[in-house]
Computed example of a mutant assay.
Amino acid sequence: MKPNLILLLAFAILPTNSKGQNTIPNEKAEDSLNVMFVGTYTKKEGHVNGQANGIYSVMQDPETGKLLFKETAANIINPSYVKVSKNKQYLFAVSELGSKDAPSGFVYSYKIDEDYNLEMINKVSTESFAPCHIALDQSGNFVFVSNYVGGVVMVYKIKPDGGLKKVQRIDLENRSDSNAHSVTLSSDNKRAYIADLGNDKIWIYNFDLHTGKLRLNSQAYVALPNGSGPRHFSLSANNKFAYSINEINSSVSVFSVLKDGGLKLIQNITSLPEDFTEKNSAADIHIHPSGKFLYVSNRGHNTIASYKIDKNTGTLKNIEYTPTFGKAPRNFAISENGKFLYVANQDSNNISIFNVDPKNGKLTTKLAPLEIKTPVCLEFLGG
């Protein structure tokens, strides 16, 4: 059965209220709910028809997984990636702008007030265009922003008031071809891995916690097969294994992590069923909090691919492909308790809600997707 037909059948059986949205019982006190911030596109670009107002806030019931739209938390152009600070007092957001929009892209810093609205502290240039990802170091003192255009990665220090101050600019090689898509810090805070989609490389840097600066590791990089397009990167909690979701060839690359932080490729596995031959772009990747399962999103096939992680070798075995009840699933988020997985479906204007089976990692749902304009990034404040 074709994925689109599966999707239509799935929509037909999903429960919904008259507005097509989930509701949380009125008696539920707001302070018992979790907050999720939603990054969006606000204007039409070459790859998306942005329709949102900015950053939205959504309430999550931690018991049932239900979502309820709260409000527009901040008006900002194309906040395509958002990240909450380690102390949960601030939120950082990129403004994904091109050369026709402004002299550069920007990263904004906001204070999260008691009503979960966002008060802008400052905005800083990303010194290139189309900033698309934000990462934090484990101490919570430094912010890393990747610019898709120009191969530029920026490091900022978080000031006492929550504002950002430039620390370092990194220019990746072959800037005209480079697409810096994400930075990932190891749990011991010693390494930073930069996924360079355009150059088909994962760059490896040593991180200096005292200065906040990055310095090339002795290995420098690991090269993937031409046309892979590494996009996002995840590390196991013990830093023994690493996983790259590759956008262009729809694959997951598995690495063993060496003692010096270097990477050794041990497996490449497709993110798609063998019989799927239509266009697809893989997007996001996350390891379940239990460490037992790994999930990736497929735009085109419109599924979440689930894998079981071998605890000894780190290698993957496919579990299933679950339709996302939407189009172009981008970023997705797993709740801290591991019970729920939420998917931002960019082109169908909704967020899908799944229960995660803790025994086998499979995804199921009884809730209708939450309607929300052009969602592309989901970030929990907590829970």
Results as ranks from 00 to 15, higher is better:
76 I>D: 04
76 I>G: 05
76 I>Y: 05
76 I>K: 05
76 I>L: 12
77 I>V: 15
77 I>M: 15
77 I>T: 15
77 I>K: 14
78 N>T: 09
79 P>Y: 01
80 S>N: 08
80 S>F: 05
81 Y>E: 12
81 Y>Q: 13
81 Y>K: 12
81 Y>A: 12
82 V>C: 08
82 V>S: 08
82 V>R: 09
82 V>G: 07
83 K>S: 13
84 V>D: 10
84 V>K: 05
84 V>S: 10
84 V>R: 08
84 V>E: 09
85 S>Q: 10
85 S>L: 09
86 K>Y: 11
86 K>F: 10
86 K>T: 13
86 K>E: 14
87 N>W: 02
87 N>L: 03
88 K>C: 09
88 K>L: 08
88 K>R: 13
89 Q>V: 05
89 Q>R: 10
89 Q>S: 10
90 Y>A: 03
90 Y>W: 04
91 L>D: 05
91 L>F: 07
92 F>W: 04
93 A>C: 01
93 A>G: 02
93 A>V: 00
94 V>A: 00
95 S>Y: 06
95 S>R: 06
96 E>R: 05
96 E>P: 03
96 E>A: 01
96 E>H: 03
97 L>R: 00
97 L>K: 04
98 G>T: 11
99 S>Q: 12
99 S>G: 09
99 S>V: 12
99 S>I: 13
99 S>W: 10
100 K>T: 07
100 K>W: 02
100 K>C: 02
100 K>P: 01
101 D>I: 00
102 A>C: 06
102 A>G: 06
103 P>I: 04
103 P>N: 06
103 P>H: 02
104 S>A: 08
104 S>T: 03
104 S>R: 00
104 S>M: 01
105 G>Y: 01
105 G>S: 02
105 G>K: 01
105 G>M: 00
106 F>I: 08
106 F>E: 11
106 F>C: 06
107 V>P: 00
107 V>S: 00
107 V>A: 00
108 Y>C: 09
109 S>G: 08
110 Y>N: 07
110 Y>F: 14
111 K>P: 10
112 I>W: 03
112 I>C: 06
112 I>S: 04
113 D>Q: 06
113 D>M: 04
114 E>W: 11
114 E>D: 15
114 E>M: 13
114 E>V: 14
115 D>G: 10
115 D>T: 13
115 D>Y: 11
115 D>H: 12
116 Y>A: 12
117 N>A: 14
117 N>G: 14
117 N>Q: 15
117 N>L: 15
118 L>R: 08
118 L>Q: 04
119 E>H: 15
119 E>T: 15
120 M>C: 13
120 M>Q: 15
121 I>E: 05
121 I>D: 03
121 I>A: 03
121 I>P: 02
121 I>Y: 01
